[in-house]
């Protein structure tokens, strides 16, 4: 009897230590996976990095026949469309977050609004592209045409509207990153301790005075993080831009002009690329990764700090 207990204990212990080891190894592999992604892209980009170096970032050519590559227009297009999208998403997202957290709505309507925003996040990028191409662009056409006719001296409207371009791309992109901005801002806003709000209300402040002077300043770091993370998401968004941006590399301020982004360039060119172009595309992927990782790391760090700061004054939820 004693013997069987001894062996089964030993058996359980062996299982246990094996199990611990497997979990530990897999945790380590997760980190290695992160490293491997960086390494693989860097490794395959090396030929292009050696050949083009820094001029890859400052040249506007993309000419596979002469093996001349540069991504300046794509970098510009990525930033331009992302900043415009962030303006749309910031305005809409923060308003939605305020309406969801500051007791504006009966709980059913609140649930509806929350669900709508969550569903927006669930719609695949390619469906946004389809919708943008067959619905948003035709809808914008008369308005954009009018803008160009009346205000063609303003650099933003200096080119005629040809369909796919920065304006529709940025609008759709803004709707796509709206859920990211809204949900992170919502977390930040609901982390504001209610006693601060109650104190301000007790002094006779109106609801919006409370929001402007107490809630938003207290949650400002979290909202900042939401904007940075939304920006990071916009930089890497691919399909909708590949379908809506126009796939034409131009350095222009015009909202109506076709454009291109790093991710859209990858999506459009990669499937048909020869070896030298593939290496240049890997370099472009590396640039994209550097941009989006720095936005992400920055956003994650701000968000953690915001929570840490709230936790230190003892007011976090």
């Amino acid at each position: 009897m004693k013997n069987t207990i001894g062996t089964s204990l030993k058996f359980e212990r062996t299982i246990d230590s094996a199990f611990r080891r497997v979990c530990w190894t897999l945790a380590l592999l997760t980190i290695l996976l992160g490293g491997l992604i960086v390494f693989e892209i860097f490794y395959h980009a090396t030929p292009a990095i050696k050949k083009y170096g820094f001029s890859f970032l400052t040249s506007s050519q993309w000419d596979p026949a002469n093996e001349a590559y540069g991504v300046l227009p794509e970098i510009w297009g990525t930033f331009y469309s992302s900043v415009l999208a962030l303006i749309v998403a910031g305005l809409l997202g923060v308003s939605v977050a305020i309406w969801l957290t500051q007791n504006f709505l009966p709980s059913r309507v609140e649930w509806f609004l929350k669900t709508v925003v969550e569903l927006l996040a669930a719609i695949p990028s390619v469906v946004y592209g389809l919708w943008g191409f067959y619905y948003v662009i035709p809808m914008l056409r008369p308005f954009a045409g009018w803008l160009h006719e009346q205000f063609s001296w303003v650099p933003f409207f200096s080119t005629p509207f040809t369909g796919p371009g920065i304006l529709p791309a940025a609008l759709v992109l803004g709707i796509m990153i709206l859920p990211t901005v809204a949900s992170i801002s919502r977390d930040a806003l609901s982390a504001v301790p209610s006693r601060l709000k109650e104190a301000a209300m007790g002094l006779g402040a109106t609801r919006w005075e409370v929001i402007w002077k107490v809630v938003l300043p207290t949650a400002s770091r979290g909202i900042g993080a939401a904007l940075v993370l939304g920006f990071g998401r916009a930089i890497g968004e691919t399909m909708a831009l590949a379908m809506l941006a126009g796939n034409s590399s131009r350095l222009t301020l015009s909202l109506l002009s076709p454009s291109n982004t790093l991710a859209a360039r990858l999506a459009n060119q990669f499937p048909e690329a020869g070896p030298s172009e593939a290496s240049a595309l890997m370099f472009a992927a590396l640039v994209l990764m550097a941009l989006s990782l720095s936005a992400n790391v920055f956003g994650v760090v701000i968000n953690l700090r915001a929570r840490y700061k709230l936790a230190r004054v003892g007011v976090a939820r």
Binding site: I31, F270, L281, L288, L293, V300
Partner: peptide, 24 residues
């Protein structure tokens, strides 16, 4: 470290996952 990497990975542009799988 794993948590940090996972958070950063969750913001990885999906096309880069494709580039990675293409290379690997």
């Amino acid at each position: 470290a794993v948590r940090f990497v996972a958070r950063v990975l969750s913001g990885l542009p999906s096309i880069l996952a494709g580039v990675f799988a293409y290379a690997m």
